[in-house]
């Protein structure tokens, strides 16, 4: 078994420094790895990234992250990524990592993702250049996620995004803003290749649990949704183990 701890949307800055650390200090008792689903900072400044590094650095489990829209606000993504990397927080953007854990090998494919909406109620790459750029950003992110998931050689694959891949886990948000919360292309990418679990954040008023059209469990781990320092999910070491069904007539 592999147990994954996950949280997103912690929006750290000096005023909230240290709030998560008491729970994180004991995370090795409860999880094998910690995944961060973006919006780690308020504005994406280097100073805020240092607060994130202090909060999530030096834990007894590996820490893997994607960034969110807040982390992009000050156009300092390379600097933020470097500060986090210095604290051994591995930031993914269109790539992946395979970890050897006691319960097996875990592959994580990570991408921020973007909006556009969900099946039947979504934007198209048509018309103004701004609209084409918007949707093209989403499609490119989904393509990188699919390629990375396909390439991971491991026992268990997990997809990590900031934006939502399905509408079920944003349920609770106003329907009018769904196109700004996620995109169906991310869900289609997750369905490509035996993904065991998809984790995202972004939708603070959303719901924790959902499933992709292809049957992959999805969890919205935005801190306001899980209302804890992190949530944890236990996965069997191999999703491809043959299932034995026992039928007992009554």
């Amino acid at each position: 078994m592999i147990t994954i701890g996950a949280v997103g949307d912690v929006h750290l800055d000096k005023d909230a420094a240290g709030t998560l650390r008491p729970a994180l200090g004991r995370i090795a008792d409860k999880a094998d790895v910690l995944l961060l689903a973006g919006d780690l900072t308020r504005h994406g400044t280097v100073a805020e990234a240092r607060v994130v590094a202090d909060e999530f650095g030096g834990l007894d489990v590996p820490v893997i992250a994607v960034l969110g829209n807040h982390d992009y606000d000050r156009d300092a993504v390379p600097e933020v990524t470097e500060v986090l990397a210095d604290a051994d927080i591995h930031v993914l953007e269109g790539d992946g990592v395979v970890l050897s854990l006691p319960g097996g090998t875990l592959g994580v494919a990570g991408v921020k993702g973007f909006g556009g909406g969900f099946e039947g109620k979504c934007g198209s790459a048509f018309g103004e250049p701004e609209m084409k750029a918007f949707i093209s950003h989403t499609v490119a992110a989904a393509d990188r996620l699919r390629t990375t998931l396909n390439s991971l050689d491991c026992d268990v694959k997990v997809a990590l995004t900031h934006y939502a891949p399905i509408p079920e886990t944003v349920h609770g948000e106003p329907p009018e803003i769904y196109p700004f919360l996620g995109a169906y292309q991310l869900g289609n990418a997750i369905d490509c290749c035996d993904t065991a679990l998809a984790l995202h954040g972004h939708a603070h008023f959303g719901s924790e649990r959902g499933v992709t059209p292809g049957g992959v469990p999805v969890r919205n781990v935005a801190q306001p949704v899980i209302n804890a320092a992190y949530a944890s999910y236990r996965l069997p070491a191999s999703v491809q183990e043959p299932m034995t069904e026992v039928y007992q007539p009554t």
Binding site: T19, A23, A229, Y233, R234, L235, P236
Partner: peptide
């Protein structure tokens, strides 16, 4: 203010 408490039992993902 959001809770930063430790989580309960892990959820089993089938």
């Amino acid at each position: 203010v959001v809770s930063a408490a430790e989580p309960g039992e892990a959820e089993d993902i089938e």
